[in-house]
Design a protein around this nucleic acid. Structure first.
Lengths: 180, 180
DNA sequence: GTCTATAATTTGATAGAC
DNA sequence: GTCTATCAAATTATAGAC
């Protein structure tokens, strides 16, 4: 199911804006201006904002998970954990971009249900990825302990991003994640 | 400088809505309806939305910090840490309310500067409170280690709230914070 | 303090021509 | 696919009466 390239450009613009200002942080006119068309034309690609929000979030989730690689490959659990953290850190320091689903999650009570569902899927999937990645960690042989560690790491990273951006101090992210 | 009671009611309504949907999650009409006046009258109490946002956030910060008590009183560091965690948990499970500054922090890049500054002050103040509260922790005698532990706990709690709300599963908060 | 009335702008969305 | 034109609704905000 490949999407037209114009649709991808629209999602690029939407994601960039949403990762700073949330679901209400972008308008059809914003997106139209960013890709050089009129706002009415954006509706051709995505009939409603809800459609666009779902597509944007699912694409973000797929891309992020894909970038992590196979959680059961030959890397050590420390390497996988570091790769996971780096995925967030790079976006933060190089583009000043938050985790899309962290931002959406914060306002999920007021999002259209399908968009909130897509954001929830991000956390389900990242928890599962980390859970699998940590299977080879000798300190986390217990299933429940391993899932708790996975949840804890995701929560810590999401909070660290928010605080670092809000406090305008990237070192906050590093200090929070220093413990691994 | 005590505020008129009507102004307090307006801030109550704004805070409740903002803690679910962020700064864009409430309008002057919403607030007017909640307190039984017209939207134009809200401007009498708070000339602009930015004024209202700043007042709302500062009041939230003061109340939250106040509820924590003296960080250097006779309680044990474990008790203080537990009180800190409970402050977040109670709001989450009993009212389904997020931390106001967690939500604002997530969208801080798109907030009016004075509002973003007020949100930042929350993190400065909570970090300082926790830093002082943990002074009596024998495992955290080093200043830098203690501040790192404080930052880490705040980040973990903010992330835990967001994930718990988004995943519609309060137990996520408890599992993330179980490690103390 | 609160109201009515209204302004100026923005928003998501649709109809129909090309 | 993109455009023009337009809509209905919502938003923040102001002026002035009571």
């Amino acid at each position: 199911m490949e999407r037209a390239q114009k649709a991808e450009e629209i999602l690029d613009a939407a994601e960039r804006l949403a990762r700073r200002g949330g679901y209400g942080g972008f308008s059809f006119r914003d997106l139209a201006g960013a890709v050089g068309i009129k706002s009415a034309s954006v509706h051709y690609h995505f009939p409603t904002k809800e459609d666009l929000g779902v597509a944007m979030t699912q694409r973000y989730n797929d891309r992020f998970l894909d970038s992590l690689g196979d959680p059961r490959d030959s890397r050590s659990p420390e390497q996988k954990r570091a790769a996971f953290i780096a995925g967030f850190r790079t976006a933060l320091v190089e583009e000043n971009l938050m985790c899309l689903c962290g931002v959406l999650g914060a306002e999920s009570a007021c999002l259209p249900e399908p968009v909130a569902d897509a954001a929830r899927a991000f956390f389900d999937r990242t928890r599962d990825w980390l859970g699998a990645a940590l299977e080879s960690d000798p300190d986390l042989v217990d299933d429940q302990a391993r899932e708790a560690a996975a949840l804890e790491l995701v929560a810590r990273l999401e909070g660290a991003m928010i605080m670092a951006q809000c406090m305008k101090d990237v070192s906050v992210f590093d200090r929070v994640t220093a413990s691994g």
